[in-house]
C-alpha cells in the first residue's frame, strides 16, 4: 500500500533444511517473534527488500505532502488551516523517521531519494491523483490515512525492530489524521450547504477506487508476498487487508449519508463482509508504471525542491567548515 509491489529478489521460498546455518538461525528467530536488530546477521535479500519497502513508505509520506499542500493555502478557516498544516508536518516527520529506520540497514537517504527523483523508486499510487476540491482534504484523511492504518497496524509487529518501532509512533498520528479527515466530511454533510455536500460526494467518487487499490494487486498477482510473509515484513495478504478496510469504512460512509461509486457494493449476511465490484487493475498498473494523472508533476515537484535547494545546502556545509577552521 504505502509500499506496493515490493520486489523480494527471491523466486521460491526455501525450507529451513535448505538454508545455511546462519540463515536458519535468522529464520527461527523470526518464527519465534524475536525482533531482528541492525547489528544482527540478516540475509542480503531481507536487507534489500526492507530497504525497498521502508524507502517506498518514506517516499510516500513525502510525496503525500504535495496533494494536501495543494489546498493548504486555500484552507477555509484558521482552525482547518492549522490542522492541515500540522498534519502535513506530521507526514514530513513520518518520512524523516522512516528514512532513519532505513539507514539502520546501511542505506543512504540521499541515494534513495535520488532513486525517487529519477523514477527508479516507487511510492504509493494514491498520491498520483489530483486534489480538486476542499473535501479532498477530508477524504484523504479518512480514506488514505485510514487505509494506511489498516496496513500499518500489523507492521507494528513486523520482524525488523526499527521499522516496527517507527510504525508504532506513526500509527498513533495516522489515527488522529483519519478522525480529523472524517470530521471535515461529517461537518459538511451534517451542517453544510448543498454545494458543500456535493463537494463531499464528488470527492468520494474520485478517491474510492484509488483508495481500494492502495492495498496492491489481489493475492494471485502478488508474486513476492510469500517471501515477505515468511520474513514477517508483511503479515496479511493484500486482499485480506482490503477487506478489513472495506468492512470498517462502509458503515462510516453510510453515516456520512454518501454513496460509493460501486453498484455491486453490498453486505453479505452469511460472511459478515461487504462485497465489492471489480477493481480496474489496468489503471493501477498504469499509475504504478508512472502513467497516473499526477506522476510527472509529483516527482518533478520533489526534484525541484531538492535541486533548487542545492546552493542552500552547499552554503550550510561551507559555513560549517569555515566555523570549524576558525575554532581550530
Amino acid at each position: 500500500m504505502y509500499a506496493q509491489l515490493v520486489e523480494t529478489g527471491t523466486s521460491k521460498l526455501r525450507t529451513l533444511d535448505e538454508m545455511s546455518p546462519e540463515e536458519r538461525q535468522f529464520q527461527e528467530r523470526i518464527n519465534d517473534e524475536i525482533k531482528i536488530e541492525p547489528k544482527n546477521w540478516m540475509p542480503d535479500a531481507y536487507r534489500k527488500t526492507l530497504i525497498r519497502q521502508i524507502s517506498q513508505h518514506a517516499h510516500s509520506e513525502i510525496v503525500g505532502m504535495l496533494p494536501e499542500g495543494n489546498w493548504l493555502t486555500r484552507a477555509p478557516t484558521l482552525k482547518r488551516k492549522l490542522q492541515l498544516m500540522a498534519k502535513i508536518q506530521d507526514e514530513a516527520g513520518h518520512g524523516l523517521y522512516l528514512y532513519s529506520a532505513m539507514e539502520t540497514l546501511g542505506a543512504d537517504r540521499d541515494e534513495e531519494i535520488d532513486k525517487l527523483h529519477d523514477g527508479r523508486a516507487k511510492y504509493s499510487s494514491i498520491f498520483n491523483y489530483p486534489t480538486l476540491n476542499w473535501a479532498d482534504m477530508g477524504t484523504i484523511g479518512w480514506l488514505v490515512d485510514g487505509a494506511a492504518i489498516v496496513n500499518q497496524v500489523p507492521l507494528q509487529r513486523t520482524s525488523y525492530g526499527p521499522y516496527a518501532r517507527a510504525m508504532i509512533r506513526v500509527c498513533k498520528e495516522e489515527s488522529f489524521h483519519q478522525r480529523q479527515g472524517y470530521q471535515i466530511l461529517l461537518t459538511m454533510m451534517q451542517e453544510g450547504t448543498d454545494d458543500q455536500k456535493a463537494m463531499v460526494q464528488d470527492s468520494i467518487n474520485r478517491f474510492w477506487w484509488p483508495a481500494l487499490m492502495m492495498f496492491g494487486p489481489s493475492d494471485e498477482n502478488s508474486p513476492n508476498s510469500a517471501q515477505s510473509m515468511a520474513w514477517k515484513i508483511k503479515r496479511h495478504s493484500n486482499d485480506e487487508l482490503r477487506q478489513r478496510f472495506l468492512d470498517q469504512t462502509v458503515p462510516q460512509l453510510e453515516l456520512l449519508g454518501c454513496t460509493a461509486p460501486d453498484q455491486d457494493l453490498k453486505y453479505n449476511q452469511e460472511t459478515g463482509h461487504y462485497e465489492f465490484g471489480a477493481i480496474d487493475w489496468q489503471e493501477f498498473f498504469d499509475v504504478v508504471k508512472g502513467n497516473g494523472p499526477c506522476n510527472r508533476e509529483r516527482v518533478e515537484a520533489r526534484r525541484n525542491a531538492i535541486d533548487n535547494g542545492a546552493w542552500v545546502r552547499e552554503a550550510a556545509v561551507a559555513h560549517a567548515a569555515k566555523r570549524q577552521r576558525r575554532a581550530a
Binding site: M65, L66, L72, M85, Q89, G95, L96
Partner: peptide, 24 residues
C-alpha cells in the same frame, strides 16, 4: 503555507511549517 513541499531539505520542511503554525 505557500512553501509547503518546496523546502531545500526535509528538516527545513518541518522547521518552516513549525514557524507557519506558530504564526497562524
Amino acid at each position: 503555507a505557500q512553501l509547503c513541499g518546496k523546502a531545500p531539505a526535509l528538516e527545513e520542511e518541518l522547521a518552516l511549517m513549525n514557524v507557519g503554525l506558530d504564526l497562524f
